[in-house]
Design a protein around this nucleic acid. Structure first.
Lengths: 178, 178
DNA sequence: CATCACATTCAGAATGTTTTGAACACAGGA
DNA sequence: TCCTGTGTTCAAAACATTCTGAATGTGATG
């Protein structure tokens, strides 16, 4: 195989490994996804283990994670008993999965905790000494700032996820906040 | 001190620890930032070590990281020789720092690598066998998808960072993509 | 310039995470 | 039923990260 193809493959695989880390997944998951993405044909567990030079056990577990996240799926190959996988090629779909099943929930939990804190402080107000009351006011201010941030995050996620149809990245010319 | 104040403090500190992890920092950094954020008065290294029950060495190192990221700054306390710190209270400022010095660079590196890959494939075209050429075409397609994604990320980051004045999260009603 | 009060550093310990590979489970075919 | 090829599991090992605390550095002060 020509060296340029090998080099491009390698840099894509390691780049996706990096991206996976960034999104809080294991690097191996990213590399597996990358390997599948850069292969026109489906690959078996053994193929993947051999290509990435990692144990079959690791491939097995990481592939199941990839499946759960909708980043890869099993395909049937005629006359073969092995499991074969392909990458979900719609990157947008993958991002949507991650953002909606993980990030969005995180943000909502955070907002919930903040709201609880505010309620707690308001409820306790009558029992506080003057100094404590001053501190409570200070807390409310800081918590309000955090709330604003998470509300922004919620809004941004909602916007990205809200558009039902697949966003065609190529046609985006502007991201507006207002 | 009233239990509600303690509870709110604790949940904010651990929430910020969590957020720090999410952004790829150490949890301790987040907790330190949270502790400072929830204290009207500056705190010394010893105060922080005692409050969070961690060693002074760890506090020292993590506080220097926080300073480098613009999340905390030293303040002079009259008549004291110790170093005192306060949290940068403008959350938006903190986010801007992180996004512009880290995320934006990451995205630009990724785009650069992808462009290099495309160039490499184009340059090698004449030397390829027919099968290799088919694979190159396939690679170009996949790489184009990745490029679109990173270009979107670049655009979004640019929009958030581009607005010179501090964004008031409270007044944001919409995040638009188009 | 010696002392004191603090901050910083870093080797080693503690802890957390990921990987491996051997054991096991399972399904299909003989 | 037993064998064979495959996938899965999980305890232990390898590896990575983070923390600690004693040693060291630093600078202000008498």
């Amino acid at each position: 195989m020509h060296s340029s193809l090998l080099a491009v493959n390698e840099s894509t695989v390691s780049g996706l490994g990096r991206l996976a880390r960034f999104f809080g997944f294991s690097e191996v998951m990213g590399r597996l996804y990358g390997t599948l993405l850069m292969n026109p044909e489906p690959l078996s567990l053994d193929d993947l283990a051999e290509t990435l030079e990692i144990s079959k056990g690791s491939v097995s577990m990481n592939m199941r994670s990839l499946e759960r996240w909708g980043m890869a799926k099993e395909v049937w190959v005629r006359g073969e008993r092995k499991k074969y996988y392909t990458a979900e090629p719609d990157f947008w779909q993958v991002i949507r999965n991650v953002l909606s099943s993980r990030e969005q929930r995180e943000v909502q939990v955070a907002l919930h905790v903040l709201r609880d804190s505010i309620d707690k402080l308001r409820a306790a107000e009558v029992e506080l000494t003057p100094e404590e009351r001053a501190l409570a006011v200070f807390y409310l201010e800081r918590i309000g700032d955090l709330q604003s941030f998470f509300q922004f995050a919620q809004l941004a996620l909602g916007t990205i996820l809200g558009s039902e149809e697949t966003i065609n990245f190529d046609t985006i010319t502007k991201v507006e906040i207002g």
